[in-house]
Design a protein around this nucleic acid. Structure first.
Length: 583
DNA sequence: GCCGTTTTCGGCCCGACTGTTTTCAGTCG
């Protein structure tokens, strides 16, 4: 029996948290399981092995009890307490708590007093009017539950929005709000400001000389399908594109507190407040209350909020309770990479494969984006991406790239390929041809459903190929569309570190692959990372912000990103075997 | 259940909103 993966252990802890909550356990115990789930999910390395060695307690939030449960899950395949609770509470009861407005307390009462144990029996009880007869429930509650079940049955659990879609909506609204004559300041907040992979809704914080006028103006924007709560300090809207947006209009002197509060994350804020309480300070969106003086300090900027707590300013991308508070206290936060640090892009496509622009046009776009170099890496021969690039065609493509390169004084064009990693780990161009290229990205595009062991061996073989400079979009996941394929990330890291093979952070907002956790681990293992746009059209370099965001959320500095260097320096940094071939 | 520049016991973030209540529990972010 294979060890449980980190995500399997985390899922078990989350389920334990949900079930203990239904069981009426102390909320602190429930929170402890959820914190444990987060710690395991975000841990680098296999937590099952760590627990077997008695070292899982080194993870923040994992104590002796949770470690014991990890060991039980590893050795017996189950956790006794979890099995016991599963027998006590039907799975439909847990599903019921996913309904907005119905939490564990009231769900449990519906189960105990009416025998409700599923969405179906909940509907029956509500339709029969039995719920409104219960103490603490009324007609409104009964009606709300019926509507919640109907909405849930139709649409399922609330969908999260991929960042680029949310940002497009948010930045358009932000521009409108900033353009309003009474607006002084306005910023996006929430997970969109942290550049998270997906978001639930949008938050905007503004200050205005006439809050009421701004709120009215927001409610009347052409993008707005519906507006509610049109008070003077807040307006909630739903756009025609289906995105919910909360706009808060606050006093200028409080802007920093509210922006910090609404930017989150929830975990960051909870840890921040916990830390503040230990110093006799209480942080909320209204200010920082000092116990010793009774004074509430209001902050116009976020910098002041963090300074009051004795810590350095924390960039929004880092606010996930992944060690940033400790680093901010000790002055060891990283100097995060920015888009301006990138000097080139090493992964793009032209009409030779599935791109929509010529080499010339892509070169012009890269120059306009401020790059010094660009590798043309069309897909290799074995896949049906538009026109396959046969070996002969690649030879002609190399000549064309050289010709065009000569006419671009400001840009170095590099010959390359995004070559397929075949199921056995070999590449689909002959070695002599690959040796003529400046740069080779190897990617998996087929046979995603191999076993974990086979997929790991396949990728490791590609990494060990001295003609491969970089592995493209390592996990193959597409955010909110496709799970990553199964492979052993630790084994891949070991191989990449050993061979000097680089790993890509693909900036396509639907990919962002490596993800931020893998990117952080890879950099910690000393593996150079490359932020690539994987551009398929002349506008394709605009997605660089998502790759940079992932790198920043991975705590990465410019020195950990290979393409912050000039091309020659990057090329020379490659292992000797590879350099000889390229030369 | 975890954790420790007040603690190995006694704490554990902060506030808004809602509906059902006459002061609050539950839920949410």
């Amino acid at each position: 029996m294979p060890d449980p993966t980190n995500s399997e252990i985390a899922a078990a802890f989350d389920e334990l948290g949900d079930l203990y909550e239904l069981d009426g356990a102390s909320i602190h115990r429930v929170v402890a399981y959820r914190n444990g789930a987060k710690a395991v999910r975000e841990a680098s390395g296999a937590v099952a092995q760590l627990a077997a060695q008695g070292r899982a307690t080194q993870l923040p939030g994992i104590g002796a009890t949770l470690q014991e449960k990890i060991v039980a899950l590893t050795t017996t395949g189950e956790i006794p307490a979890l099995e016991k609770l599963r027998a006590k509470f039907p799975p439909g009861l847990v599903e019921m708590t996913k309904l907005p407005g119905l939490g564990p307390k009231r769900a449990r009462r519906l189960h105990e007093e009416l025998g409700v144990d599923s969405l179906g029996s909940l509907t029956e009880a509500a339709t029969a009017g039995r719920i409104s007869e219960l103490k603490g429930f009324g007609d409104k509650a009964e009606q709300a539950l019926l509507e919640a079940v109907a909405a849930y049955s139709q649409a399922g659990p609330a969908q999260r929005i991929v960042l680029h879609r949310a940002l497009a909506v948010g930045e358009e609204l932000l521009a409108e709000i900033r353009a309003h004559p009474t607006t002084a300041r306005a910023e996006l907040a929430g997970s969109v400001r942290r550049m998270a992979e997906t978001v639930k809704d949008l938050d905007i914080v503004a200050t205005a000389s006439d809050p009421g006028a701004l709120a009215q103006a927001v409610a009347g924007l052409p993008q707005v399908e519906a507006a509610s709560n049109p008070g003077t300090n807040a307006v909630r809207i739903r756009t025609h594109s289906g995105v919910n947006v909360d706009v808060r209009i606050v006093e200028p002197g409080q802007f920093g507190n509210v922006l910090q509060h609404l930017t989150g994350s929830k975990e960051h804020n909870m840890a921040l407040r916990d830390l503040a309480v230990r110093r006799g300070l209480h942080v909320s969106e209204y200010g920082v209350l000092d116990d010793s003086t009774g004074v509430t300090h209001r902050c116009a900027t976020e910098q002041e909020v963090y300074a009051l707590l004795g810590m350095a300013y924390i960039e929004p991308e880092l606010r996930e309770d992944r060690g940033e508070l400790e680093a901010a206290l000790s002055g060891t936060l990283p100097e995060l990479v920015t888009a301006a640090d990138l000097k080139g892009d090493l992964h793009c496509h032209t009409t030779a494969s599935d791109g929509t622009a010529s080499i010339q046009e892509m070169a012009e776009a890269a120059l306009a984006a401020g790059y010094e170099y660009l590798a043309i890496t069309d897909h290799s021969a074995s896949m049906g991406f538009g026109a396959d690039v046969s070996a002969d065609e690649l030879k002609r493509q190399i000549e064309r790239i050289h010709e065009i390169d000569a006419s671009f004084p400001g840009l170095t064009l590099l010959t390359g390929s995004e070559v397929n990693v075949l199921p056995d780990g070999s590449l689909d161009y002959p070695g002599e041809l690959l040796a003529e290229l400046d740069w080779v990205v190897a990617s998996v595009h087929t046979s995603f459903r191999m076993s974990k062991g086979e997929m790991t061996a396949r990728i490791v073989r590609a990494i060990e190929n001295p003609q491969v400079d970089c592995i493209g979009h390592l996990s193959g996941r597409k955010i909110a569309q496709r799970q990553p394929y199964e492979f052993d990330f630790d084994a891949v890291l070991e191989a990449a570190a050993r061979t000097g093979t680089m790993l890509e952070i693909n900036a396509n907002p639907d990919r962002r692959d490596l993800n931020e956790l893998h990117a952080r681990d890879a950099a910690a293992a000393g593996i150079p990372l490359v932020i690539n746009c994987d551009a398929h059209r002349i506008g394709g370099f605009e997605v660089v912000r998502y790759g940079v965001a992932t790198a920043r959320r991975a705590w990465l500095t410019p020195s950990q990103i290979a393409n912050t260097q000039g091309w020659q320096k990057l090329a020379d940094s490659r292992p000797p075997a590879r350099r000889q071939q390229a030369a």
